[in-house]
Design a protein around this nucleic acid. Structure first.
Lengths: 230, 230
DNA sequence: GAATTTTGTTAGGCTAATCTAACTTTATAT
DNA sequence: ATATAAAGTTAGATTAGCCTAACAAAATTC
């Protein structure tokens, strides 16, 4: 059984290597910075995780997850995101309160508990931040999100998350009438000034990169197909 | 903020001093045995808890809880019992699976979380074992349970818990048609052979002390009044 | 009331996860 | 291609919670 701390290292490695596109390994310093500990501490812990066959690592080299390490890290994230969903949907916590509580709840290791919770919530696909919830095999079948900025003209996207949690940003979205789970079609992308025009709920809005770069989306057709072609 | 371990010491002290009738203090050896650690360990930890003003203690003396210690211990028990109730009522866990999971869940320290959970469960008074759930002030207003054996003839009692979790015992109760939350009236107590006759749900049953001594009850009238006169 | 048993304490060690400080290896840049 | 900077390692210390072994105090018993 893994300790609380070991699980946090695996979770961090998933975030830094798997959820970060194009990156499959990470250095000691980066991991230390991410976890808020000193490189010396990471150096020790990585040796320990290697002995448990959870990471690939050689002295002075880069760190990456093994199959087993990836699976266990994904399970921590699955638990985290399911608890966040529970807190929001059933206990009426707001969007920005759930993360901290889930940091503790994610370390409760009962497969049965988490699968029951999943069923109780009706097998949700996204947590309150719009992040996809890994399934019980530790996989995310849904295409990874991108920013609205990276979308293609003419395509329809579902807004599933925001990159910036500040109430300032959230209030501005409110003012624009944009909410998580809305679907919007990009009707124009102007490369010179980077303004993007979208249509959603019958409204049309011109958005600056200050907004589009902070909205995570998934293309609606891929979401339906559970497979990404774009 | 208290550690996981410190909380377990306070919880154990509540069980051993407050929930054990007539006892207000406990020795180092007893506490060590209860917690499954060595007396030397308890000796150290008690000194630490004293410095935090959570227990009363003098070298070679007995241990008791201060007001603050009692309150915090009660909060751990409140969280434990609310999570047990959640697991049984919402996630369909059985009666005997919930304890172990709640051992972990009880250490999540959010007042807001636990009060929301309480509301979500509609402010339950008993956990799945029939134990009363302390309120947010750390008090149990409901009279303490007794065994059916100690009941009085003619009085009506609610069966709220069993002392013996073995599936053998539970199956026998099933066979008798007795379930937790049933109410039963004692219609005869025979002191010679210790057999007790009860009436419940229109049925009558003669029970041996092997059963009555392992059924916890609360007198129905006191339960309504939330105050015990008997 | 002295001997024995029970109860509790102290000293010294262990492990996990952290740190600092000094050092080594690898990468970068002129 | 060597000097410097960046990245990573190692040694030694700390803290919490536990242990064992030896000892001390209190309670019990004859």
């Amino acid at each position: 059984m893994l300790s609380f701390t070991e699980e946090n290292y695996l979770k961090a490695l998933v975030q830094l290597t798997i959820f970060e596109e194009g990156v499959t390994e990470v250095g000691v310093n980066r991991l230390a910075e991410y976890l808020g500990v000193k490189p010396a501490t990471v150096s020790d812990m990585v040796r320990k995780l290697k002995k448990k066959a959870l990471v690939n690592y050689e002295r002075y080299g880069k760190i990456s997850l093994t199959e087993e390490g990836r699976f266990l890290g994904m399970m921590v994230i699955r638990r985290h995101r399911l608890w966040e969903t529970f807190l929001q949907q059933k206990l009426d916590f707001s969007w920005d309160e759930v993360h901290e509580l889930a940091e503790d709840l994610e370390h409760i290791h009962s497969k049965k508990l988490i699968n029951r919770l999943d069923a109780f919530l009706d097998h949700p696909e996204f947590d309150p931040h719009g992040d996809a919830i890994p399934n019980r095999e530790g996989e995310i079948l849904i295409p990874f999100r991108r920013t609205l900025n990276d979308g293609e003209s003419g395509k329809r996207y579902k807004i599933i998350a925001v990159k910036d949690n500040s109430s300032e940003f959230l209030k501005y979205l409110d003012k624009l009438g944009i909410a998580i789970n809305d679907e919007a079609t990009i009707i124009n992308k102007e490369s010179f000034d980077e303004l993007i025009t979208i249509r959603f709920n019958g409204k049309e809005r011109v958005l600056s990169p200050k907004v589009t770069d902070y909205l995570f989306v998934i293309c609606a057709s891929c979401l339906k197909a559970k497979k990404c072609d774009c």
